[in-house]
């Protein structure tokens, strides 16, 4: 059970949250994206072993979405940041 430090509510048990899958997936311009680009947007996910970027929703709390940088092997949460923040780089 992860302990997730909600930026609005503080550290809370994973059971209060819903994982929304990989974060930072840019929505292509639907008018210009070809089928392959659109399919990649819909279906292709990195499924990394190690540092991964996800978005989480405090479903049973404040209801806010935010980004989480989490090591998928150790479950260490390296960063929690706003939906509008860019993907952390370097030491994250």
């Amino acid at each position: 059970m992860l302990l997730i430090d909600c930026p609005w509510c503080g550290p809370r048990d994973e059971a209060e949250f819903r994982c929304g899958g990989e974060g930072h997936i840019a929505r292509p311009d639907p008018d210009t994206a070809d089928d392959a680009t659109w399919a990649a947007y819909l279906f292709d996910r990195d499924n990394v072993k190690g540092l991964g970027f996800e978005r989480w929703h405090h479903r049973h709390g404040c209801g806010r979405w935010f980004n989480v940088a989490r090591d998928t092997v150790t479950h260490e949460i390296r960063a929690i940041y706003a939906m509008t923040d860019p993907k952390p780089t370097g030491g994250a």
Partner: peptide, 13 residues
């Protein structure tokens, strides 16, 4: 409701 919130918070901020 969840879908509305997700689109508003994650895409059309």
């Amino acid at each position: 409701f969840d879908a509305f919130e997700e689109w508003l918070q994650c895409e059309w901020v």
